[in-house]
Design a protein around this nucleic acid. Structure first.
Lengths: 195, 195
DNA sequence: CGCATTTACGAACGATCGTGCTATTTTATC
DNA sequence: GATAAAATAGCACGATCGTTCGTAAATGCG
C-alpha cells in the first residue's frame, strides 16, 4: 500500500512544520503546497484537521521516543540510565531533532488551555514521559545508586523543568550556553543525590 | 479621550484571550464579538493584527510587572527580595493572573521559531525578565546573603526553568502539587546557597 | 448649544480556512 | 495486460480571516 507510505511522509513534514508554526498554525493547504500535492489528496488521508493533528502528535511521539528514550535504555538501569536520559534530552535539543524546538514543550504550552482530543493526547503523552522519568529515578534508588529520601516525582519535576528551561533559552533567547547551563544544573542535582 | 480607555479595555481582554488561544489564535472578529463591538471599530484602534499583537504583549508585560515584580520590590534587597520574587511568581500562577497560564511562557514557546517584530518584542521582554532575576541574585551576593561562587546567570536560568515547569505541571497536567514542588526546589536551592 | 473631531459601525473585498463531492489517475491482484 | 480498488486531483461550498472605505454616532471644546 502506497497510501501508508505517503501518509507517513506527510506526517514527518507535518511534525516539522508544527514544531515551528504550532499544531493550530499547521494548515492543510500549506502542508499540501509544501509537499507538492493537492489539498484534497492530502485531506483524504485524515478526514479532518483534528485527525491530522492527532496523527501528527503520534508521529512526533515516535520520533521523540526514538531519539531520546530508546537510546538511553541501552545504558544499564540505575544512575547511568538516568543520566543518559538527561544527556539524551539535551543532545536532542542541540541536534535540533524538531526544527522549531521540542515539539512537546511547544504543544504543552499551546494546548494547556485548549480542551479537546488533542489536549487529551498531549497530556497523556506528557504524563507518560514524566512517568518514565520517575521510573528511571526509582530504579536508580532500587539499584542503590541514589538516595531514597528524595521523592521520584519531585526529582522528575525538576529535571523536566530544566529541560523546558533549556529549550526556552536555546530557541527563543539564542543562548548558546543554555544546554551547558542545564547540564550543569542536572549533574549538580544528581551528583548531590548519588550514594 | 474615550479612545484610550476603550483601547485599554480591549487589550485587557485580548491579553486574557491570548493567554488561552495564543497570540496567533487571537482573532480580530472573535475579540470584537467577545467585547460586543464591531470588527472594524476594534480594528481602527490598531491598524493591523501585528500591531494588536504587539499592543497585547505590552499590556501583558504591564500586568506581569505589576503582579510579580513590583510587589516583590517592597522587600529589602538581597535574599528577602530574591525569595519574594520567586514566591510572587508561584503565587501568580496559583492565582491565575492570566486565565490560560503564564502569558510569557506561552508566547515564548509560540514565537520561538516565528521571526518578526512580535518575536523580537517577546525576546526582549524575556531578556529583561531574566536580567531582573540575575540582578536580584547579584544584589543578594553584594549584600552578603548569598554565596558568590554561583553565577547569577546560572541561578537565574534554574529559577526561571522551575517557574516554567510549574506552569506546565499546573496548567496542562492539572498537578495540584506543582506549585508546592516548585517552591520546594526553589527554597532548597536558595537555602543551600545562603551564607 | 453648536460644531469640529474623534470614535464606532456596516458592508464589502480578496484570500484562505476546513470540508465535501466527482472524476481521473495510479496501484495492486489475477 | 485486464480489472477492481486505492489514491490523488480538481473544483466548489460556506465560513472566517485581515483589511479598506464611506458613513453615522458619540464626544469634548468654545
Amino acid at each position: 500500500m502506497k497510501g501508508r507510505r505517503t501518509r507517513q511522509s506527510i506526517l514527518e513534514r507535518a511534525v516539522d512544520l508544527a514544531s515551528i508554526e504550532g499544531l493550530e498554525g499547521l494548515t492543510i493547504g500549506g502542508l499540501a503546497d509544501d509537499l507538492d500535492m493537492s489539498k484534497s489528496g492530502l485531506f483524504a488521508h485524515f478526514g479532518s484537521k483534528e485527525e491530522l493533528q492527532l496523527a501528527t502528535v503520534e508521529a512526533a511521539a515516535e520520533r521523540y521516543i526514538r531519539e531520546i528514550y530508546t537510546p538511553a535504555l541501552k545504558q544499564p538501569r540505575g544512575f547511568p540510565r538516568l543520566l543518559a536520559i538527561c544527556e539524551s534530552w539535551l543532545s536532542y535539543i542541540r541536534r535540533g531533532v524538531f526544527p522549531g524546538g521540542c515539539f512537546f514543550a511547544a504543544a504543552s504550552f499551546e494546548f494547556d488551555s485548549r480542551p479537546g482530543p488533542v489536549q487529551d493526547r498531549v497530556r497523556r503523552l506528557m504524563d507518560d514521559w514524566i512517568g518514565a522519568l520517575e521510573k528511571a529515578v526509582r530504579m536508580a534508588q532500587e539499584e542503590g545508586h541514589l538516595r531514597t529520601d528524595v521523592d521520584p516525582s519531585q526529582l522528575a519535576f525538576e529535571l523536566n523543568a530544566l529541560f523546558f528551561g533549556a529549550n526556552f533559552a536555546f530557541y527563543l533567547r539564542n543562548d548558546q550556553q543554555a544546554i551547558q547551563r542545564a547540564r550543569q544544573a542536572v549533574e549538580a542535582r544528581l551528583e548531590a543525590l548519588r550514594v
